[in-house]
Design a protein around this nucleic acid. Structure first.
Lengths: 103, 103
DNA sequence: TTGGTGGTTCGATAGTTATACAACTGTTTG
DNA sequence: CAAACAGTTGTATAACTATCGAACCACCAA
């Protein structure tokens, strides 16, 4: 048929669920949004913006990285994060594919 | 500029979170997907497809309805559900708007 | 009415998770 | 080396939630 094959490989069920869970938490969503705002975002700054412990920040960032929504890169003492927009787009596409129906 | 203003009102923070949580559960996602498949789906059928109690089905459907992802309509003895694609699309749009960045 | 079927609500339980503190690793600077 | 700073990990706890059985409500048919 004519439905062009997706350019990206479809998300696995496991990753789809991971992403869903990662996005479901308001705090994590806020972190993601903050990271998305700037070009790169050191973890330290995040801690100062949200009144939570650095352990919690680290935990949330780990979830986001595991879900593939964020990439981390160590820069000396610091860790910089950036959003993986491809993953985010793959997720929304998959979401619409699954529940968006045929129109 | 030329980006047409959204036809839909933006999702409130509360609803955005509700939707996120609703979509995060694999079972609920499966239910949503099933509903999306057919035109209308009576609750009874759902119960027979997923090996869970009807109480659990009811609970999940309530979550989906509360999130605005699904609409329920009583049809005599039965309750039919249909997916609110507008909500789903509003969610994905908001997601990309928040975290999709300017890329 | 009585019964039967479809769905909801209640109460309890088990599993998950967000959070913090403390201890630890890694890095830079004296 | 030691000290200071950035992040991670371990442990514990509190809050949340998915799940079920049972009781209940809504509708339909005798």
């Amino acid at each position: 048929m004519s439905t062009r094959p997706p350019t990206r490989p479809a998300l696995s069920e496991a990753q789809f669920t991971l992403i869903g869970k990662a996005l479901a938490d308001p705090r994590r969503m806020a972190l993601l949004e903050t990271i998305s705002g700037g070009r790169e975002c050191p973890c330290a700054r995040l801690g100062s913006m949200f009144a939570v412990s650095k352990a919690t920040i680290s935990h949330h960032m780990k979830e986001l990285v595991t879900a593939g929504l964020v990439e981390s890169r160590r820069e000396g003492q610091y860790v910089n994060y950036c959003v993986r927009r491809d993953t985010l787009q793959a997720y929304t596409a998959e979401l619409l594919r699954r529940a968006g129906g045929k129109g």
